[in-house]
Design a protein around this nucleic acid. Structure first.
Lengths: 145, 145
DNA sequence: CTTGATGCAAATGGTTTGCATGTTT
DNA sequence: AAACATGCAAACCATTTGCATCAAG
């Protein structure tokens, strides 16, 4: 696994070294995400935050930038059903469960799917990529009411 | 768990007994699904099939009918990301993995998530409902190329 | 007859795209 | 200057909704 530069300068240098261009949108999107280290930001939330620092960045550019950063391996997107996708750093690897009742997102350890993944590989030859999945269900509080 | 009547008459009788109305759309949707016992039909596929028997049934009615049958516990919908939802009978309980490369849907046994579910409950108090989840990944063929 | 289901058209919401223009390298 | 990213508006696609009408009970 390649080392993941953590500071914004490290990430930018890494992208530049790969021949990618550094633009305002990319810089500010990364900055916003670094300012919300625990956040799972939707495109809209991202756009709101970005517009505080760079009001001229268009929503469609946020989409394109998030997609670019995901392709580049910097970000990970997570989606379930019709709910909007959320993004976080790929280096902060974990899985997600979401309460159907209150909407709370619970972070599951990155190895939560390991056993299932092994079983799918062994029994079905299927190599699971559970990174983008949200498991629906009821959180502790909502389950007890 | 209530007994699941299998024939169309049984299902209809069951719905009627619960005070629900039996309409052409509901009858034909059920018939189509019974005619595709292994299928995971999207709303559009459902609409195509239904229109052969009942051309006047509107697409929005298919949506409403599918939702109704899901609420009634007869059908289950499965969705991932932006892909259209697919429906099958609730009595045919299983989980789904989908190849990101070729789109093949692999049916996983209904207990595939049991271990993960137990772990989520024990460690996080989270009661998983993995019924509507599709695990992305690569199927055997696409993984070997 | 009363309640609920349907047809239709129009709206919605998240996301994508075509194209001319602006920026990075 | 060449390659690429962006702004903008318009398109897209699955799905939902308001409302007048129709059918099931």
């Amino acid at each position: 696994m390649a080392s993941s530069p953590t500071g914004i300068d490290g990430i930018l240098a890494d992208l530049r070294a790969r021949g990618e261009r550094i633009t305002t949108a990319r810089r500010v999107v990364l900055q916003v995400l670094l300012d919300h280290p625990d956040g799972h930001l939707t495109i809209d939330e991202l756009a709101d935050q970005v517009s505080e620092q760079a009001p001229d960045v268009h929503l469609s550019t946020i989409y394109r930038t998030a997609e670019f950063l995901e392709q580049a391996g910097v970000l990970v997107s997570v989606r379930l059903g019709a709910s909007p996708a959320v993004y976080h750093f790929a280096s902060n690897a974990h899985h997600h469960a979401r309460c159907e009742n209150c909407g709370a997102v619970i972070e599951l350890p990155g190895n939560a799917f390991d056993a299932l993944g092994r079983r799918l590989l062994r029994d079905h030859g299927f190599r699971a990529h559970p990174n983008h999945v949200v498991i629906p269900g009821l959180c502790r509080d909502c389950d007890n009411s």
